[in-house]
């Protein structure tokens, strides 16, 4: 039996691989003839969370809430504008040049659009093996062997190495994308909506592949998706994002069974339930209004403009990130449940 305090400090199984503190990613807005900066889009505005080694952290939210930006910022595909990203105890938020490149093999990304993320003019083999050359991992026959292994690992015919990406179906391309991500044997993979562009029939295959690989290779995932059912299936813990901020973070069952934040409730109410009896009784919470402009977010709680439970305080004071205490996690562990809402007191 592990205590909550111990979970945070345990370095063996559940220790944090990635720690994020107050991560900010602002994109400048230029206007006019002289292109002066007139403001910024606050795509990610002060995120803090940990990802433990070997777990899958789900990140959900509407389109445009900053999920993908968060994923890319974590991998330092952007120059972050603020906050700290600690990977295995090392702050990578400020790294640049070769120091950053040296970190690349440890963390990889699987993209949403398997077509766009593969260079159309490179063969599958060279797409996969390119980083092996770059990081001097393998050469010659060893390299070719590694490509074959990777293709086999993702369930592809190793003979396909000489073909071009456009010759494959969407699901196959995503497998190639996964093989590519695995090439450098990373510890941490950001899966940015990896199944959103795939046919439903293929989605399960890819998700299962990701789960198998995680088991086999001990991978850590940040799984970004807007598909709550898929998140429920794959994630250990789930973070809910709204307009650049995380509003709730809880173990997956806890979040689905006992959501605390009104936004989480609204999201979950939209998920169809396979049981007809429950489905008939399901009450949908319909959010009104549009998502506010991230360049000019509302004061106080960002959700207050659309929140069905909003009170006056919500539009004045920003709710703090509070730990509601332990809740039952997956595999019998106990995890904390965090939320940022004035109405959850």
């Amino acid at each position: 039996m592990t205590t909550i305090a111990e979970t945070g400090g345990d370095t063996a199984a559940g220790a944090p691989l990635v720690q994020v503190q107050d991560l900010e990613m602002y994109f400048p807005i230029y206007k006019g003839v002289l292109r002066r900066q007139v403001g910024s889009v606050r795509a990610v505005d002060g995120l803090s969370f940990d990802i433990r080694r070997g777990e899958t952290l789900g990140l959900v939210g509407e389109s445009g809430c900053g999920k993908s930006t968060c994923g890319r910022a974590l991998l330092r595909l952007y120059e972050v504008t603020g906050g700290r990203i600690t990977f295995e105890g090392r702050d990578i938020a400020e790294l640049a040049g070769n120091a950053l490149r040296d970190m690349r093999p440890r963390m990889q990304m699987i993209f949403q659009d398997p077509q766009a993320c593969l260079n159309p003019r490179m063969t599958v083999g060279s797409i996969i093996s390119e980083p092996l050359d770059e990081h001097h991992v393998a050469t010659g026959e060893e390299k070719r062997q590694r490509v074959r292994e990777l293709l086999e690992a993702v369930g592809m015919n190793p003979e396909f190495a000489n073909r071009y990406p456009h010759e494959f179906s969407g699901g196959q391309r995503q497998r190639i994308g996964i093989a590519r991500a695995l090439a450098l044997a990373p510890d941490f993979i950001v899966c940015d909506e990896p199944i959103a562009a795939l046919d439903v029939s293929i989605q399960a295959q890819v998700v299962n592949l990701l789960q198998d690989l995680q088991e086999k290779l001990g991978l850590t995932y940040l799984f970004i998706s807007h598909d709550l059912s898929m998140i429920r299936h794959i994630a250990d813990r789930v973070a809910v994002m709204y307009l650049g901020k995380i509003v709730e973070l809880a173990p997956v069952e806890e979040l689905f069974n006992a959501p605390k934040h009104p936004y989480t409730k609204a999201l979950l109410s939209a998920v169809p339930v396979p049981d007809p009896a429950v489905e008939a009784k399901r009450e949908r919470i319909i959010l009104t209004g549009d998502v506010p402009n991230p360049a000019n977010p509302p004061a106080g709680c960002r959700f207050c403009t659309r929140c069905p439970d909003a009170i006056d305080r919500c539009s004045v004071e920003e709710p703090v990130w509070r730990n509601l205490g332990p809740a039952k996690g997956s595999n019998g562990t106990v995890e904390d449940h965090f939320v940022a809402c004035h109405r959850v007191e």
């Binding site: 490149r101 766009a116 260079n119 390119e130 980083p131 770059e134 590519r180």
Partner: peptide, 25 residues
């Protein structure tokens, strides 16, 4: 394009990203 991001994520040098990946396409 995403494949440029892929190349950067692979840890390719900026020169390689630009001249091999982007320029060729």
């Amino acid at each position: 394009q995403d494949y440029v991001r892929t190349a950067r994520a692979k840890g390719m040098k900026e020169r390689v990203v630009l001249l091999v990946h982007v320029l060729r396409n």
